[in-house]
């Protein structure tokens, strides 16, 4: 048993144990409770629902690793979606061509990065608390979006966009592919790049990082820009999935992304945590909600269960830390 645990840790890392245990528990419980759980339909719905939350969670993950938070991700995603929508509308709406889509997507990414740039600059140069900076950015973007759309929807996009939200490639949903690409990119970024290394160092002690010659301001600005750009990807997927843009779409995801990060073992103070456990945690959350759905419960009960799950995981971590201390 012990040897098995050692091998598991060697292959996946010790921080994967919790999320994998939760995954196994969810699969077993719902597998026994509902005969329809292990069907393509369940996993299909998970595969299509996971990406938005998943990509937004990546956008939240990076700032948390620096010891911050980006509360503006959902509205950044909305604003990016809005940008794309406008470009499409300005180029003929439903008749817009792929060129317009490409241009719009680039601009959308730019808008996302720009919101991150402003936050990053304020945080890096004034050392204002990231919660406050991103919170005010969130209030600003929400206001700006509502002002520009007058609270309404924008819809009517060319048909070729729909597959980004609904299509499949080789049997795998396109949005899931995008999520997986983002997860892998973030994983490589964090584990292998200089920027990723610096992100961790800044998260656990920004001053010592600065003394060691890390350009802490540049890293902070880049991290928030990246966070904004990733949020923009989520915004583009949301546009394709709903075939419309509305300010407030996905708003309820905001605190869920924070929850998913903590569930995946990200240190709330920054400096520690990896992408893959967070990805598994996301799958667990989505399976939970789909499983509960099968049992006749609604999304609200799932939300509550998510909260309970976080508490249970934190209590288990506390208990295991205590246990390790006792056996030492």
């Amino acid at each position: 048993m012990n040897a098995l645990a050692t091998r598991f840790n060697a292959i996946f890392g010790a921080d994967m144990a919790g999320p994998f245990a939760a995954l196994a528990a969810v699969l077993i419980v719902f597998g026994l409770a509902s005969p329809q759980f292990f069907t393509a339909a369940t996993f299909g719905s998970v595969a299509f629902q996971l990406p938005e939350l998943g990509i937004l969670t990546l956008a939240m993950l990076l700032p948390i690793l620096t010891g911050g938070l980006n509360l503006a991700i959902t509205f950044t995603a909305n604003m990016a979606g809005l940008t794309l929508a406008w470009v499409l509308q300005a180029n003929g709406g439903a008749d817009a061509g792929p060129g317009a889509f490409l241009l719009g997507s680039l601009l959308a990414l730019g808008v996302g990065a720009a919101s991150g740039l402003v936050m990053g600059l304020v945080i890096a140069f004034t050392r204002a608390h990231p919660i406050l900076v991103s919170l005010s950015m969130m209030i600003f973007l929400r206001g700006l979006g509502e002002f520009l759309t007058r609270g309404g929807d924008i819809s009517g996009f060319p048909g070729f966009i729909a597959p980004i939200g609904h299509g499949s490639l080789l049997g795998i949903p396109v949005p899931l592919l995008i999520l997986i690409a983002c997860v892998l990119a973030c994983h490589v970024l964090l584990s292998r790049s200089k920027l990723g290394f610096s992100t961790y160092m800044i998260g656990s002690n920004i001053e010592s990082a600065r003394y060691s010659g890390i350009n802490t301001r540049k890293v902070l600005v880049l991290v928030y820009m990246l966070s904004g750009a990733i949020a923009a990807v989520a915004g583009i997927i949301m546009l394709a999935r709903f075939n419309s843009v509305r300010i407030g779409h996905g708003e309820s995801y905001l605190l869920i992304t924070v929850l998913a990060c903590f569930l995946g073992g990200i240190n709330p103070f920054g400096g520690f945590g990896r992408v893959l456990p967070v990805f598994v945690a996301l799958v667990v959350l989505q399976l939970l909600s789909s499983g509960l759905n099968l049992l006749g419960a609604n999304q609200h009960l799932a939300t509550a269960v998510w909260g309970i799950l976080l508490i249970v995981v934190m209590v288990l971590r506390w208990a295991s830390a205590k246990f390790i201390k006792l056996t030492k």
Binding site: E207, S208, G213, I214
Partner: peptide
């Protein structure tokens, strides 16, 4: 507080200035 990044690993601290 400044010389080393206490929570991080020995290896990461050692390479921090020479990435």
């Amino acid at each position: 507080a400044l010389g080393l990044n206490q929570p991080q690993s020995i290896a990461d601290n050692l390479v921090m200035a020479s990435l």
